[in-house]
Design a protein around this nucleic acid. Structure first.
Lengths: 253, 253
DNA sequence: TAGCAAAAGTTGTCAGACAAGCAGATTAAT
DNA sequence: ATTAATCTGCTTGTCTGACAACTTTTGCTA
């Protein structure tokens, strides 16, 4: 089951039109600042009604590709499409490595966040983490669903960095794997000890952050990410042997 | 006369409607999977025509909030708004620390990318980097604009990681600072030696990646990011003292 | 009760019209 | 001749009504 939301096929006319114009812009056919054809012209070109063209342009405006001024026309934005980041067009959802690639991105930011959280956390941040941790511990002992607490724990760490941009991004990337956390917390996951294992990794992260030990926090997060990837069947061999500092290989013996 | 209060600036009716519905979804008034009112109902509620409602829904579809099926209706997506990441609503652009926060995010991914590139680069990737590097060297000696080559160099490193998601994200974050690279490459930047300094940092990154030395590549990238932040006036003291491995402090003496 | 066909409802598309605003050409005033 | 005001198309924004494509419900029949 693919983790990434599949992009719907353009069965709607307005979507085909918007995708076509988007391609024009991305391919540089229409440079930033350039005025694109009038709605009447476009409707004639595509052989559709003006309403369809308007809906297509509405999409493009929402995605930051164009901006229009009444009476003047529609113009290509200065940084078309660069005001938002969508994983759907960053990777081919059908590709077998797509999930691994996105998980690697998550790995990068989560390990960094853990390290930052260790040095910047407030006591209040720690309360948030402990609260989520307790809920997870309870879920482990009661063999119930702990996905929400799991999510909250990671968000609490991101929040402790004091960087709202980082928080938002971790939230974003984490949500891509929301469904993938289920195999850890369902009945089979409990039986196989996956929930318990995840919990132990979380505890180590918490302890390192509480102790303001950035190095240990990073390493604990790294281990957690690698194990989490393994639990949901992602081949970590491909990104695991990334160059790493000696301490990362030997820490926490 | 529109029923809704014109609270914000949206001069366009369709934008007002889409923002209102977006707020409904974000506030949990409409849970995922719920069918939202029919276009006819909405047009009556808002006191606008059905065309306006359709354009508003078109925006919401583009942003991943809703999906519609002909004959059935429009439904709130499972993870509304979580399929795209916008820095605009991640940080308050007016906040003085916003730039620093986003740069820190860039710092995190670029240093990781440099390390990954060192272990995964192909010879072809190296050619791309060297080409951009030569163009920058030329720009330094001729005191011309090297922003494009600068951008290309970083993109080439990201591409060498073999991770399209990471590439796309680095491209996205990097573009946020496109304007900020100018002070390095304009006349004053050349005179102050900023262009030359940046070039030296780039060269070190390249050499480390060419030598497949991930540790050195990460350190070179870290230095470059810190210096780049300093050049555009970002206070690095806040995120510089992040916990770091010993090797990162001592490498490249 | 089960199956099926008609009907009602909803989204997708089309056509035409008018209002609101913009840009260049024309005209008037100095 | 230069400048200011006005005029005139053109473009986007909105409205209305209609029909097609499709889904869901209803109601009838076997």
């Amino acid at each position: 089951m693919p983790v990434i939301a599949r992009v719907a096929r353009p069965s709607q006319l307005s979507e085909t039109v918007s995708k076509t114009i988007e391609k024009w812009i991305l391919d540089g056919v229409m440079a930033p600042g350039v005025k694109l054809p009038t709605e009447k012209t476009l409707s004639a070109e595509f052989g559709v009604s003006r309403a369809v063209v308007r809906e297509a342009i509405s999409r493009l405006k929402a995605e930051g590709y164009v901006a229009s001024r009444q009476g003047a026309g529609a113009f290509v934005e200065a940084r078309p499409g660069q005001n938002s980041f969508r994983l759907a067009d960053a990777v081919d959802p059908a590709g077998p490595a797509a999930t691994a690639h996105i998980f690697e991105l998550r790995y990068i930011v989560e390990t960094a966040a853990a390290a930052l959280a260790a040095s910047r956390r407030s006591d209040q941040d720690l309360v948030q983490m402990r609260e989520a941790l307790l809920r997870m511990r309870y879920a482990v002992s009661e063999r119930t669903d702990g996905t929400q607490a799991d999510d909250d724990f990671h968000v609490a760490i991101a929040a402790a960095t004091g960087n709202p941009a980082l928080l938002r991004f971790i939230r974003f990337v984490g949500h891509q794997f929301f469904a993938s956390r289920v195999p850890t917390w369902n009945a089979e996951g409990h039986a196989a000890g996956r929930a318990e294992a995840a919990q132990a990794e979380h505890e180590r992260m918490f302890e390192a952050i509480a102790a303001r030990d950035g190095v240990a926090a990073r390493e604990a997060a790294r281990i957690h990410m690698v194990e989490a990837a393994r639990r949901i069947g992602i081949d970590t061999d491909h990104w695991e042997p990334a160059p790493r500092a000696p301490w990362e290989e030997e820490a926490l013996p």
